[in-house]
Design a protein around this nucleic acid. Structure first.
Lengths: 198, 198, 198, 198
DNA sequence: TATGAATGAGAGTTCATTCAT
DNA sequence: TATGAATGAACTCTCATTCAT
């Protein structure tokens, strides 16, 4: 019987290291050799796990959005929460990711800034997935407005604005290592409080 | 003096086209061949105007910041304006650039997101220049607070926040072609009004 | 103005050397490095003249058949020759090529033996071109039979058989360097004489 | 003794499939992965049976010639046959192989056309073995001439010519699937009849 | 025995850059 | 000045082969 290796764990490791190199050095400097070295494996071993560079990025992107999608869905389905509570939960989660998992979020931002795909072979449609996320936010907002818990507003536009907040947090955590999650979350709560019907 | 005009015009053209390719296709797809084709010149002719790829980007970045620096300096030096007026002028300018000259601003954002330089050979320090810009903003804010025109605030933090606004505008204009400059500026004015001492 | 190089001459040189390497060492040992070395140029310079390996082979094959086609057409159109004369001219030409330009003919034979294309990217359809050549031979044979100059025969089958003669000559000149063109041609003439109506 | 039977059977299977891939797709497309897939075994299992690719080809070539050598030897030793009978038996056998076992014969032809060995590591000397075969033919011819059964001839040259017949049959069966063995053998018999002393 | 894991060697190919006109 | 020619460096990816179970 062959060597026993945790296939999925290694896939994840390769994808993580790829994102790291990508974010630290930029797309132009993404060399599989660097990734392999970081993983402690041979350069060609990567091809046991991914067909090509594009597939690694695809995996990383799908992985990010799987978590984001799941959280939004979970919040939406949480019957113990009023719309404002759902909103807070989702936004806190996004901020948390933007600050704690900043490399992945920068990757997402890269693809938003360069729609024509940074790397040939990447099939994942970041733009579309972000749009879907925003629609999820919108739905929560609208539910709050309908129930009278949130003040009347243009839900679409507000979803947009709330997303800006996440983007800004991503940019800032890229720029400054010491962004405080607590402070950011406090600011967020104040902002969201303002959305409640008086 | 036709030659000199031609020379500088072509340098600018090459840099502009480079930024276009970069932003549209991503750094990884930046090929001098594409740039030359867009400029309608031979591939190697580029080397008559720039020593290498890094120098083209350097030129483009320097060009952006020359305008930004100049505007901030001009606003600061404008004796006809009160601090709040200077602030408005600077911020309006930045928003305008973010929306109307979005490719250049995306380039700047790219370098902010990837500090280790997207292209080897680029010497221009974007981080440092952005910091300088923010310090300029801070100075205006502090002057306003000191003169009593603006309400007391943490100027440093506020400069930071105001910059977020510009970054968000850049991301959004990358994402959506039809960002309205007017709406954005109106929102900006409301926001800045809130900074005035009552 | 750029370096002056005889573009077509170099293309031909590259194709010739490619065929040489191919025939001497086999398809598996066709390495562009070897070809480039034989041409006295850098490995990557080849890509100035051909898009990829397949294109080189395509060029070589097209080149062979251009000559073969031209000769068959010329013989067919030669009004000074009776059918038996045309037949002799064509067959002598084919034998001559098989012996004097044996590398190119071995290349053709390779593709006949391995219909699924030896090299990915080769588009030239050798089987079809050989078929066309045989049809040309057939036409000449039929004209001779119709005019009464040649004895009645199954033209299709005879064209086939005459081709075997060329193939055998190719194989033999591959095997033995000292195949005598004169002897082969003499045998050929005797053979073709037998086709004449008594 | 199931294991030993299995072992040899699998060696043969691997060699057969290797030849198939080789002949169908060309040497350049010979990948052990394809062979393993055709055999229904894992890619690396092949190394339980052969040390490397060259050894597989060696085995296949040796296998072909073992049969050819044996048949020639058997015919030569067959005291019930006159030289012309031996000749017929050998030639019929060769034709039969050329048509019924065409893949193996194409393999042989490949090595004749590319003396420098198609695959590095192959040690089997095809040229030499074919030469030996021809010498065997020659011996039979000479015996016939000496006994007066066959008409006087240059045995060496005639052995050569008879081989051409086999080569042509191989090329043709590669080209056209529906080569008729019966027709070919009938033609062969007529041809060989012509060698008999009147 | 059988085979997944792992990898070094090496191929084709691309491209920024230099050369030469 | 402008640019085709030329190429070295470097990258992605393939594959035979070895390792370890």
């Amino acid at each position: 019987m062959p060597k026993i290796v945790d296939y999925d764990a290694r896939r994840k490791d390769i994808a993580d290291k790829t994102v790291s190199v990508l974010v630290r050095d930029g797309f132009r400097e993404l060399k599989l050799g660097k990734v392999a070295a970081l993983c402690g494996i041979g350069r060609t071993t990567i091809y046991q796990y991914f067909r090509n560079v594009g597939q690694i990025i695809d995996y990383a992107l799908a992985d990010v959005f799987k978590r984001l999608d799941a959280e939004i869905a979970a919040a939406a389905a949480d019957v113990t929460l009023a719309p404002s509570g759902k909103l807070l939960r989702v936004m806190e989660f996004l901020e948390r990711v933007a600050i704690l998992d900043k490399e992945r979020m920068i990757l997402v931002l890269d693809f938003l800034l360069h729609p024509k795909r940074e790397v040939p072979g990447v099939e994942f449609d970041v733009q579309e997935h972000v749009r879907a996320l925003r629609v999820g936010l919108e739905r929560v907002l609208r539910a709050g407005v309908d129930s009278g818990e949130l003040r009347p507003m243009d839900a679409k536009s507000m979803a947009f604005t709330l997303f800006s907040f996440v983007e800004a947090a991503t940019v800032h955590s890229a720029l400054y290592d010491n962004i405080s999650l607590d402070t950011t979350l406090r600011d967020l709560r104040i902002l969201l409080d303002g959305l409640k019907a008086s």
